[in-house]
Structure formats: structure tokens, C-alpha cells
Write a protein that binds this DNA or RNA. Sequence first.
DNA 1: TATTTCTGTATTAAGCTTAATACAACTTTT
DNA 2: AAAAGTTGTATTAAGCTTAATACAGAAATA
Lengths: 272, 272
Amino acid sequence: METASSAKLPDGAKARRVYLSLCDQISDGRLCDGETLPGEQKLAEAYSVSRVTVRRALDALSAAGLIEKRIGSGTRVCSKSLTEKRAAMNFNTLMPQLVEMGQSTTARLLSFSYSQPPDYVAQALALNANEKAQIATRVRLADNVPFSHLTTYVPTHIARNYSENDLATTPLFKLLERSGVQIDAAHQSVSASLAGPEVAEALEVAEGSALLSMKRIVRDIDGNGVEYLSGLYRPDMFSLEMPLVRTGKGEARHWEPAIGQTGQDENEQVRP
Amino acid sequence: METASSAKLPDGAKARRVYLSLCDQISDGRLCDGETLPGEQKLAEAYSVSRVTVRRALDALSAAGLIEKRIGSGTRVCSKSLTEKRAAMNFNTLMPQLVEMGQSTTARLLSFSYSQPPDYVAQALALNANEKAQIATRVRLADNVPFSHLTTYVPTHIARNYSENDLATTPLFKLLERSGVQIDAAHQSVSASLAGPEVAEALEVAEGSALLSMKRIVRDIDGNGVEYLSGLYRPDMFSLEMPLVRTGKGEARHWEPAIGQTGQDENEQVRP
DNA sequence: TATTTCTGTATTAAGCTTAATACAACTTTT
DNA sequence: AAAAGTTGTATTAAGCTTAATACAGAAATA
């Protein structure tokens, strides 16, 4: 789940569970920096496992630098390294606020092809049967730490309007709009999912970690699907932040997202 | 991860991983209904495990009713039951659109106490040292299937202004506002995390499943923390949906969430 | 019809995980 | 100074997981 978790993680089922759970709690903030966590004995009881098992989980956490064990004293959380790295995603701009944090962002292209998209994509974009799409998968990194795994699908008849060189330099949306595509609206869906083998490796995260997932379907003014974006984000480096305002009177009083300024989009292409 | 996953899931580390990963893909829509998934042999290679291991994972999925195995033919995804149950959360109202789906919502109170909140909550609400809070944990169910696990923290000096009876009948926000609390703004943070032992049981989900997590900090007009809400949602039954509009001209062109109508809030209290 | 592909079944052995237990060393608290 | 609580270390045995292999039966395909 964490930066150094590409180190080895426990092999067994139970040890792994404990490890991932604690990992998650630390990066989530439920276990704060400096906080002393329950003794091995108590953890063993909490998770209904033996102390040896807890031990293995803690050893892995310690190796990952997430905790600090002190003989006779206890085990402390040590998440300084994490907290600082964490990037927020402003809900308004839908773009990580990396510039403000002085972090550099780079991208790595994992795959690029024109082939047939999976069913759910074809369906979402309302593609003709057997119509191919430009499929690109890339990982974005902040300070050399990967934080997002993005896959985009663009129908070939649209993707044909720009060259691969263009992709290397210009954000996808500008290319589309320059190609005469009239981008109108999009629908975004946020949820959570697990890190599979490939994604886990790409994001340098433990397989089985929780990831924030986003799907975005972009349509032109005629309602035709123009792009399908599927993104996975490391929760320890990324969260969707949104300010809310309580507005309305009486029975109609309710929450509403406060929207604001402008911004770029993170969805840009990179040369293979 | 799924409804029936309270059935038994594989014990081993690897089998479990495969199971959870496939589970996740199905409820996520990456594996569509009716789709035939790769053969056991190919899956074994993809996950770098033996066929026996894949077999155990598939058996569990089959027992959970998520897939259908046909001798000689292959294995098909069978997610009808899921798709229909899925509730969307309208981003504008921040409330699940359950009414529209004709689903009934109930709540179950898991714990209720006045005690000292964890560090990160006290810090977020800027509580005085050792100041206690009303802590309530409850699970919300749609058609008897749990979909959210909510924990709220309210400073005692505020929670004292209403009775436990009030909590049973009236949404928390109305109680707060009736108590003279001037609710102004809130900040919400969306991320992902793993299901721990307790939460997994409460949500009837496999331990180690991915969950959508939300934290909301509510403040009054003086900036004092009034409520801290921590919510975990089953991604197979819940997603955060938000329509977007492409707006602005030239360089300033960007995405913006489209906001709209009113609605109630799901955050209401229930009698112990 | 023949071939390929897939699931179902079975067996074996190696290896690892887990639990249970005991004790030593070190801190903190009483 | 004593007691309680913590991590470190070690041992043992049971049990389970995993991999590797082989073959039978069913379905799709050529």
C-alpha cells in the first residue's frame, strides 16, 4: 500500500490481511503519526490470529518504514514520509494540485494500441460492433512516485484526426477539440477497487491494496462517445477533496458542492 | 465483496487474492454480465499461480453466485443480481438515490457512546484536550443489504442540546441547526480503503475488500468543528456520480461539475 | 468426425503458515 | 524496587496451501 511496500509483504493469508489492514489505516490517517498502536498480543486478539502472525505483519510494516518498533516500549506509527507526499485533487479542477506543492509530474506510457475495447467500454461509448479504439495506458508520477494509472479509449475514427506526435505534446482534450470534436459534457463515476497484479506493480503498491477508481465518459454535443477514461489512484497519495456549502431554506436546505476556479485537466497523452 | 460473499472465501493467500481481484472486477463492471472469462489455465498464468489455486477462487465465486461454470464450455459472469441493486449517489444531493429506485432504507445502530475520539478526529474538530464526543456508528441498508458504514463524532457540548429520542427521529443536521448551531460549510474528502474485520462483517463483505471512503468535517460559521463523519461504502452498491460540463473559452476551458437540484442528507441518527 | 479447449477429478509431495508455548531483555509504571 | 507490559527469540507440531501432473468428460470448432 505504501511507497516501500514494493518490498516483500507477508505470504500467508492472515499475516497479509493484518498487514494490509494496518497499512490502510496508517495511510488513511486513522493511525496518526507517532501514535502507539496496541501491543502484539492485543492485535492478535483483535484480528483473531496468533501473535506470530501479527509479528510477521509488523515486521513487514517495519521494513516498509511505516512503523518503528521499540523493545520493551511499544510500536509507533511513523508516517511522516507519507503525509508530505500526499497530493490533493481539487474537485473543481479535477486536477491534482501538484504545482502548488512544487512537485513535478511525469508520465510513463505502459501500452499503446489500436484494438478492440472491452465490452463495457464499447457499450458506454456506443461503438459499432467490432469497431476498434485507440487504447493507451499510462502511469503518472509525482516526484518519481507513481500515483495514478490511467487508461483511455478513443474511437479510431476520432483518434485518426491527430498524430502520435501530437499526443506527446498536447493534452488529449485540446487535440479532440482541434479535430472538430465538440466536447460537451461528461459523466464521472467515483468508486473503489482493488489493485490487481499489473496495476499493483505499476503503482508500486501491494497487490490487494485499495485504490480510488474513476471512470469518465466524455460525449460530444450529439451525444456520441468520444473518450472513455478509466483511472486508478493510490489513496495514500491522492484524494478527492470537495468543499461543501449548506444552502437553501427550510425543507429545501441541503448540501451543495462549492465550485470555483479554473484549471487544466490531468488527462494528457504521452509518446510511447 | 459481494452479497453472498459472507459465504466462505478461500483461506490461502493466493487463492484469496485471485478471488478478491475477480470479485472486484465483476462488481466494477470490468467483467460484464454474460462475458466468458479466460480459462483456468490462462488465469493461472495471469496471476502466476497454479491451476488448483485459481480453481479454489472460482469455486468460491461460483458459490457466491457471481459466476457460472459450464463443463467443457467455460465460465461466465453472472452479475445480474448485482447490477440491479446498485445505488447511485448523486453528487449534488450527496444522497443515494434510493427513493427513485423504490428501495427502502433502514439503519442499524452498532454503537453509541460519549467517549474520547481518536486523535485525528479531535484534531480535525479542534477539540480541547480530553474533550469527549458523542460517537455513533451505524450501518445503512437498502432492501436489507448493508451498503454504508458511518461513524459520526459530535462534541459533547453540542450533542447535549438534543436528546437521544430526537436522534431516533430527526436527521442530525436539523437537530444541530435547531440547537442554534450555525452550520456553514463542510469539507469532504473521498478516497478508498480496505474492509477490516469489523467493517467487513457489518457490511457483509469479504475482509480485504475495497471500500469507498468519505470523511466530512462540518464547521459552524465561527469555524468550530461541529461534526466529523467517517463513512465507508460498498463499491458494488454505491458510487459517486457526477455530471461534468466543459466550460470556458480558450486557455481557460476546463471541466466543471454540473450542480443542480436539492435533496436531503443521508446523515441521520438512529436510536440505539 | 476429429481436434481443440475447457472444466471436473484425483494424487502426491514439498513447503509454508499458523498456533501454542516458554522465556529473555528492555521500558514504563506503580 | 517491584510489577506490569512490551518486544525479541526459539521450538515444536499440526495443518493447510500450493504446485505439478495426469487423465476423463463435455462442449465448441474445424
